[in-house]
Design a protein around this nucleic acid. Structure first.
Lengths: 234, 234
DNA sequence: CGCTCAGTTGATCATTATCAACTTGGGTGG
DNA sequence: CCACCCAAGTTGATAATGATCAACTGAGCG
């Protein structure tokens, strides 16, 4: 964790924060938030930058404000598994384990609001509710991880792809259903998220297209044509 | 959650608790612990009893004191995935999500120390450190879940079996290495934990036996003969 | 223009699932 | 006490899913 840029508009930055209601800092009242926000530093990442790397200690806790972050693990021979996709409002890192045993990398342009863990702990002495809030986010992540265990352990390739597309659609709920959205991941990343190979992912995409359940165009823009059918597959 | 038996020896029960140092209640000092322990009720389970079922609300938080609990999810067609094995000291349930989206079932004879979530929340008003402690346990579970995501997504059957055996051995560290221990799960449960079928599990067990890496006898007693080789496989 | 990277598609292979038969062992009742 | 029964586990034969290897397309960029 280097080069965290100082932030000089602390006082009202949370008010303009796009993930104000989603982030773990949401639990704080406006007075506490003002104090807390003074501790934060925001950092922007280009596509594919390493945010955390394995074995690094838990010096910072982050909150994603823009973009997507992939959390992944590696085996010795290079096999990779994405264990989580972080979307705006999601928490990054943890304040408990000294060993942060994953890699975190930006997917596209990303911004993360960081807090030093030591400062969170001091802050918590007078504002213990922050722990409850971090607990909420962690429990949520645990739920997602377990959902994915079911997917990786028991779903077929086609079911995995369908589930993945619905997950993405879920994060575009703001826009109308049947709205086109950009697939943020490359085929290799999708494969690493679903426990498949590039080729299998590609084939099942083609398959869903030929069945007219989805449509893809202009690079990576995707429309889910038949939500219902996709949900039945997943 | 029915039939929670009242516990009439509250005052010093935590002192005799076998998971005193492992459980989330560990964070409390002896005064707070005495107050907290009065809120707990212990319940015993036979093999294969349902402890939580999907969709039930988060009324209770538990701490496993004896035995093993499997947490699993189901697909509509009956496919099952064990998403976690709870050992003594592990936490059961959560205090955040209203929907507890898993099944929990005892594996062998099991005892669980339960707390009503509402009571934990009241208690936390004067002892907020309990949230920090629950957060610690939840973060630990998240770490295990993600380790398993790597296993399910990217490891071969043989690697899965080896990893599983080492996980079990890990929980018998108290006894000397190369010590025999009982495999607590049936083949079907192992399969549901590793995302495999019974037959594949059985074949790879046979394979490891024929290679003299493990030995199995008297039903389900297992000795790991060659830890090193097993670790290389995993 | 040609290079590279991402993605697609095809052919073949390997691993694991499926289906089926058989073994083993513990428990029960005659 | 033995015979039987059932559940769990093993092993074999075959099938299917997904991986691997390979060739090719197309877009973006210097």
């Amino acid at each position: 964790m280097n080069n965290i840029t100082s932030n000089h508009y602390n006082l009202d930055k949370c008010n303009s924060c796009p993930v104000r209601e989603l982030s773990f800092c949401n639990a704080l009242d406006s007075h506490a938030l003002e104090e807390f926000s003074a501790l934060s530093k925001t950092r922007a990442f280009e596509d594919g930058q390493l945010i955390f790397s394995e074995g690094k200690n838990n010096e910072y806790l982050g909150s994603i404000t823009h973009g997507i972050v992939k959390i992944y693990k590696l085996l010795d021979d290079g096999r990779q598994q994405i264990v989580s996709l972080g979307f705006p409002g999601d928490m990054l890192g943890n304040i408990v384990d000294a060993e942060y045993n994953y890699f975190a990398e930006s997917v596209g342009e990303t911004k993360v609001c960081f807090y030093q863990v030591a400062r969170i702990n001091s802050f918590a002495e007078s504002n213990p509710e922050i722990y409850r809030s971090i607990l909420g986010k962690t429990t949520e992540q645990l739920g997602h991880a377990r959902e994915w265990l079911l997917l990786l352990g028991r779903k077929t390739a086609q079911e995995k792809i369908a589930s993945f597309l619905l997950l993405l659609a879920e994060h575009h709920k703001g826009s109308s259903p049947d709205q086109a959205f950009k697939i943020p991941l490359k085929r290799q990343e999708i494969a690493d998220f679903l426990g498949l190979t590039i080729e299998t992912v590609s084939r099942h995409f083609s398959n869903l297209k030929s069945k007219q359940l989805i449509r893809e165009y202009a690079g990576h823009m995707l429309t889910i044509v038949d939500h219902e059918a996709l949900r039945n597959i997943a």
